[in-house]
């Protein structure tokens, strides 16, 4: 059974220059799974979550959560879902216990549940600390505690590890796994591909308001038909990158600060790539090989998806 179903959801925000935030988005999240939604800033992830939890109405399309139509039975849906965001503010002056008690009253759950969620997320020792003064890692644990206070059947997590240090992010990921094991369906948005690969059974890639690909990490990697990635140490100029992108067997080129990453079909692409590099007399520091990562797949598929969508 599906916990969340969105059918052909579209949303445009008005104003003098209307912006299409979502175009014809459909997805189905199975009960008990962790579904990852990956996309760059402005791709439509937050808008999609806002629509799925009923905070924003879509222009077109329908949404069902736990079999209930969100537009018609919002009040019932609100008892079944909750939200964790990675960049929420907090009410100043409230202690952890006080703020959780406020939410416990809002959801009509007994105060004993406050102690329970503090224990589950490991924040009991911060019971009397002001939430606004907690470090980002502790604060995120607080938000997870708040997110599970009503024992939601579906938890929406919008970039829950953003800005956390390695230890804090690992702790949050452990809590997410535990929640999922206890039966909670989770929709997780993140920028971190490794996090999505590690946690999510299925992943949807979203770019410019469209879901451009969906599947498990392995299925997504298979979609780009790439066996290898070539890593060129050095800064390549744009004309050279364009020549490399047109070379036979090269599926995509991405340059970051000091490495250019080429996704290629297989090792046969090596010859034309090397020829291009030698002809360019570029100053290179080294070439290595790697397996395609979800990040490569994301770059390739979002590019392809958008091109197909534009046709």
């Amino acid at each position: 059974m599906n916990a969340v179903v969105a059918n052909n959801v579209s949303k445009t925000f008005g104003g003098r220059r209307p912006v299409a935030a979502l175009s014809d988005v459909s997805l189905a999240i199975r009960e008990g799974e962790i579904y990852g939604l990956l996309g760059p800033n402005g791709a439509g992830k937050t808008t999609l979550i806002a629509i799925l939890i009923g905070l924003t109405l879509p222009d077109r399309g329908t949404v069902q959560v736990c079999g209930l139509d969100v537009a018609r039975r919002l009040h019932e849906v609100q008892h079944l879902v909750n939200l964790v965001r990675g960049f929420s503010g907090v009410l100043e002056k409230f202690t952890t216990w006080e703020l959780l008690s406020y939410y416990a009253l809002l959801y009509g759950v007994p105060r004993a549940r406050v102690e329970e969620v503090m224990a589950l997320t490991g924040i009991t020792e911060k019971r009397d600390a002001q939430v606004a003064l907690l470090s980002s890692g502790w604060r995120q644990r607080f938000f997870i505690a708040k997110g599970i206070i009503n024992r939601p059947r579906v938890l929406f997590m919008d970039e829950p590890t953003v800005g956390l240090d390695v230890d804090a992010a690992m702790a949050v990921r452990d809590i997410i796994r535990d929640l999922n094991r206890s039966g909670c369906t989770i929709l997780l948005t993140t920028h971190y591909m490794r996090e999505a690969e590690e946690l999510c059974g299925r992943i949807g890639l979203i770019a410019e308001g469209r879901i451009v690909a969906e599947g498990s990490a392995a299925e997504l990697k298979a979609q780009v038909k790439s066996d290898e990635a070539i890593l060129i140490q050095g800064q390549l100029d744009p004309p050279l990158r364009e020549r490399l992108a047109r070379a036979p067997g090269v599926l995509g080129v991405a340059q970051n600060a000091c490495t250019c990453r080429l996704l290629v079909q297989d090792h046969r692409a090596m010859r034309p790539v090397l020829r291009c590099l030698l002809e360019s007399e570029a100053n290179l520091e080294g070439i290595t090989f790697d397996e395609p990562t979800l990040e490569d797949v994301f770059l390739m598929l979002t590019q392809q998806g958008l091109e197909q969508g534009d046709e």
Binding site: A50, H79, N82, L83, S88, L91, Y107, K146
Partner: peptide, 18 residues
């Protein structure tokens, strides 16, 4: 407005509050 200014309005408005 307190909830809005402190960036917590969505957490209140997704609850079953009327």
């Amino acid at each position: 407005m307190d909830n809005y200014w402190m960036g917590m309005i969505e957490h209140v408005m997704i609850s079953p509050v009327r």
